[in-house]
Nucleic acid binder design. Structure first.
Lengths: 239, 239
DNA sequence: CGCGATTTGTGCACGCCTTCACAAGCGAAT
DNA sequence: ATTCGCTTGTGAAGGCGTGCACAAATCGCG
């Protein structure tokens, strides 16, 4: 399930807040989902809750991290050290959540050699050697769209089986390779769509009256726990 | 539908490639979806195709942009000019796809006054004045998690009704406000999950045999058009 | 003018995900 | 030891999205 990471983050927050156990209701609120959904999700990976009490926070964290394969600290190769690439290279959240940026790669010779966060940018032609030095399973593509497919091909060629793509294009990869895409402009366009809907909703009620983007469980909830705790881990990219 | 922006991007690519019309099959391949799904999606916003021919590219672009509310260039306020904030402030894709970053905001006095891409960073206490200068409907939060909820509250207070949240936390907002969340670490964790599944799949076939992240339509497809076109718009963030 | 090739638009069925509601189980208090 | 309150785990119903398959419609060509 794609919600497990969200649960995991909420659990880590709760653990730091000193909670030993948590009810499905409480955890669901912290993760912004329905409690029944959460229970069903957790039941899929075994019975780790105690009726009448709730879930043992530490045990649940352990289990989820195992299922997500976070027991081993996976090495990530980041291709494209441009605008976004720089930000990603300095993102503390990667390290704090089980990942290690093992290589910074770019095709521009002008970028090669630069040191970012203690890591030197290497040229993409060295990719094969880089892959032989470390077992790289995940590649992150932060290049222009025109270069993304080529980079993806090269990553696949050296054995990468999971790709996180920030370039605004569709990647074609052989079966067995997973691709996830994050397109920042598309996120804004979706919000724009909702804005447009809200604006014309007063005039034409019932048109495109789909659900909002927020989960119903979180609607109208003020401060659903986690996020405003006194001293957060402050693992965000921002300021 | 959340797929319209993807169609729009594919259409723009096709338009630049000189295509006047496109079949649902062709556009579906470019967008990485099923053709029936695409036709159904497009039918929801009216009949803009011609049987036996296909869709008029320019007309379809116009229609989708209207539905998405991109006819007006929306003003976006970016809060949190840190690591990621800098990258977002310099992201050309926002401007090229219908958005205008109208304000850069931070809470850290050390950041205030800095000029990024021709825009001066202002303090968040000026938010009310900033909102009165320009009609800001969309806010982007790129702050640490601990500050995100507070910023969201302030944005909502000055009339922002759509928020794009990069901080790893759940935001509570009043009804009528849309929130979309992008958590970079979660994306990696989902990929890690698939890696873990693939690794243990050889030993325990049938365990967690869910679908992959790629659409079935795109599986095994090499270069599904759009992305490796000769001279792309190169609107990505990366290098 | 008619016919065939092609493509859109859509009815229908299937399957997944979500949600409700409740029985089963656990701990605490008496 | 028993009862009571609380919470998990799950059966069942409902809704929604997906994809197939086909009828309707349009263009080009003879």
């Amino acid at each position: 399930m794609a919600r497990l990471p969200e649960y995991l983050r909420a659990l880590h927050n709760l653990a730091e807040s000193g909670h030993d156990t948590v009810s499905s209701e409480g955890l669901a609120a912290a993760a912004g989902v329905n409690s029944a959904k959460l229970r069903k999700d957790l039941s899929h990976l075994g019975s780790y809750g105690t009726r009448g009490v709730g879930y043992d926070v530490d045990l649940l964290i352990e289990q989820i991290e195992y299922v997500l394969g976070l027991t081993q600290r996976r090495a990530v190769a980041l291709v494209g050290v441009g605008n976004l690439g720089h930000a990603l290279a300095g993102y503390a959240g990667f390290a704090s959540r089980g990942f290690r940026i093992a290589a910074l790669i770019d095709a521009d010779p002008a970028q090669v050699g630069e040191e970012i966060n203690g890591l030197v940018v290497r040229h993409i032609d060295e990719l094969e050697q880089i892959a032989s030095e470390e077992s790289i399973a995940i590649g992150v593509i932060a290049t222009p769209a025109a270069a993304a497919q080529g980079v993806a091909d090269q990553l696949v060629a050296v054995g990468v089986t999971s790709i996180l793509n920030f370039a605004p294009c569709v990647l074609g990869v052989p079966e067995g390779v997973d691709v996830r895409k994050v397109d920042l402009a598309i996120e804004l366009q979706i919000l724009s769509f909702h804005e447009h809907r809200k604006a014309s909703l007063t005039a034409l009620p019932g048109v495109f009256a789909g659900t909002g983007t927020e989960d119903a469980a979180a609607k109208g909830l003020r401060r659903p726990a986690g996020g405003t705790k006194p001293a957060g881990t402050a693992e965000a990219v921002g300021s």
